[in-house]
Deep mutational scan, measured.
Amino acid sequence: MDVFMKGLSKAKEGVVAAAEKTKQGVAEAAGKTKEGVLYVGSKTKEGVVHGVATVAEKTKEQVTNVGGAVVTGVTAVAQKTVEGAGSIAAATGFVKKDQLGKNEEGAPQEGILEDMPVDPDNEAYEMPSEEGYQDYEPEA
Rank of each mutant, 00 (worst) to 15 (best):
V15I: 13
V66L: 12
Y125P: 09
V49K: 13
V55P: 01
K21T: 04
E126C: 13
A30T: 04
G132T: 13
A85P: 03
S42T: 06
G106M: 06
V71I: 15
K23R: 08
V26L: 08
M116C: 08
T44A: 10
V71L: 10
E35V: 05
L8Y: 02
K45R: 14
G101Q: 12
A85S: 04
V48K: 01
G67K: 05
K45W: 15
Y39A: 03
A107N: 09
P108S: 10
E35W: 10
Q134D: 07
T54V: 10
V26W: 15
Q24P: 00
K43R: 10
V40E: 00
E130P: 10
G14Y: 12
M5D: 00
A19R: 02
Q99G: 14
Q62G: 04
Q79A: 07
G31N: 14
K60H: 05
S87N: 12
T33F: 15
A107E: 06
D135C: 06
E139A: 09
K6P: 00
G25E: 08
Q134F: 08
V3N: 03
K96H: 08
G68N: 15
G106D: 04
K97I: 12
S9M: 14
A30D: 00
V3R: 15
E137G: 07
K10P: 00
M5I: 00
E130Y: 07
G25T: 15
A69E: 02
K21R: 14
V52M: 14
T59H: 02
A78S: 03
G101P: 09
Q99M: 11
A89D: 03
A29G: 02
G93M: 03
T64F: 12
K96Q: 08
G7D: 00
K23T: 03
T22R: 01
M116R: 05
E137V: 05
V118H: 10
K102C: 06
P117K: 09
K34N: 01
K43Q: 05
A140E: 06
V37N: 00
S129L: 06
E61V: 06
A89S: 05
K58C: 06
P108C: 11
V52F: 04
K43T: 04
K96N: 14
E137Y: 08
D119M: 10
H50E: 09
E110K: 05
L8I: 03
E104S: 07
V63G: 02
A140D: 13
A91L: 14
H50N: 10
F4W: 04
E20R: 02
G7Q: 07
G41Y: 09
D98H: 09
